[in-house]
Design a protein around this nucleic acid. Structure first.
Lengths: 192, 192
DNA sequence: GGTTCCATGTAACGTGTTACATGATTTT
DNA sequence: AAAATCATGTAACACGTTACATGGAACC
């Protein structure tokens, strides 16, 4: 039930589904993705629930846009969600499930290649977040310590993303070392 | 499409749905949860696909059990999945979405309480993983460097879990400091 | 004239959760 | 006698992804 609350959170200013999607893409994208095909019907439901109201508006370019704004009830719902405390949903990490069973490949070289590829993808994500931070720094001289209120918590989430992906990269490196050590050990035992 | 592959991976030995669930609970539980109501139909589908075969078997206690075993086709499917390389699915972190919008509470004290509660939950999970590691160490003198093949990769995933939750705890602490600093700054500006 | 961006939606499908339903055996 | 554990399933619902459908305006 959280896309609903994310949309409520994004609607501090009136916006269209399309706007929200763009905004999502450059702020929450690293821990929450959403498709337009999910956003549009959800906004509709929320209007039916009385959490939002909408009106049509002309666009500078392109067709008319449906602009949503949060109602008082919507704001209450948002605050309730936050006041409930942290929602600890189970995270599913597909790649970790793969690592868990990697021995089934029966081939240390392939396993090494797997971890190497994982490392590259993780460090790519890390770099993307670092670039996002640089862009923010360039755009706002107050970054990171004198940000306005609406930037404070988003900046914290960006910092977490960096820490997490850096941890993944570190772990991949350790795994690669351990796999290497294990492989050379097993070659020795075979007398290679 | 990954529960399927996880079930394939778990079926190195013949096992019932119930067995698999228990085994899941004390190994993958920190990054992959699954309900019996999801496992049973999935096993059925997989048998229909020819990835598994089943037979009924008496139980020491309780009713008859349906024991599944992996077919050659199932083993091929498992290896293919691993050979495809890391599956980087988007992770959704509900609690991070909440942090992102925490400013909407308009109350630093409540935000602090939120982060405090998050810190406690994260450190609880970290402790659970450390306990799991201790239990493993006690049970198997070869831990962690001379584990048999089927323990090597599981141990790596356990190590990642610990790193990740430790990172979360660290980040919570940093957030708490920054929130505190921000609060006292804003009280000063108000001349409290 | 073709591509990209703006803009909104629907439909089908796949995956995951919660609740319901049943009943034997073992432990307290 | 009650509670926990063993054991297997179904049904309804919620959430998310992919594909499909449409069409205007701006840019190259």
């Amino acid at each position: 039930m959280s896309l609903k609350h994310i949309l409520l959170g994004m609607l501090n200013e009136p916006a269209s589904g399309y706007d929200i999607k763009k905004c999502l893409n450059n702020s929450l994208q690293h821990f929450w993705a959403a498709n337009l095909s999910q956003i549009y019907p959800q906004l509709g439901n929320m209007e039916a629930e009385g959490l939002l109201r909408s009106r049509m508006s002309d666009s500078d370019r392109g067709p008319q846009r449906r602009l949503y704004r949060r109602t008082a009830k919507g704001t209450r719902e948002l605050k309730n969600w936050l006041a409930e405390g942290p929602h600890m949903s189970e995270e599913r990490r597909h790649f970790l499930a793969q690592v868990f069973f990697l021995d089934a490949l029966g081939d240390g070289e392939q396993a090494r290649a797997f971890m190497q590829s994982l490392r590259e993808q993780m460090s790519g994500k890390l770099e993307a977040l670092q670039a996002a931070e640089e862009a923010w720094r360039d755009r706002d001289s107050r970054y990171p310590d004198n940000l306005p209120d609406d930037g404070f918590y988003p900046q914290l989430t960006l910092a977490l993303g960096q820490k997490i992906f850096a941890t993944y990269v570190e772990w991949c490196d350790e795994c690669l070392e351990r796999i290497q050590a294990r492989e050379s050990g097993s070659r020795e035992r075979q007398g290679a």
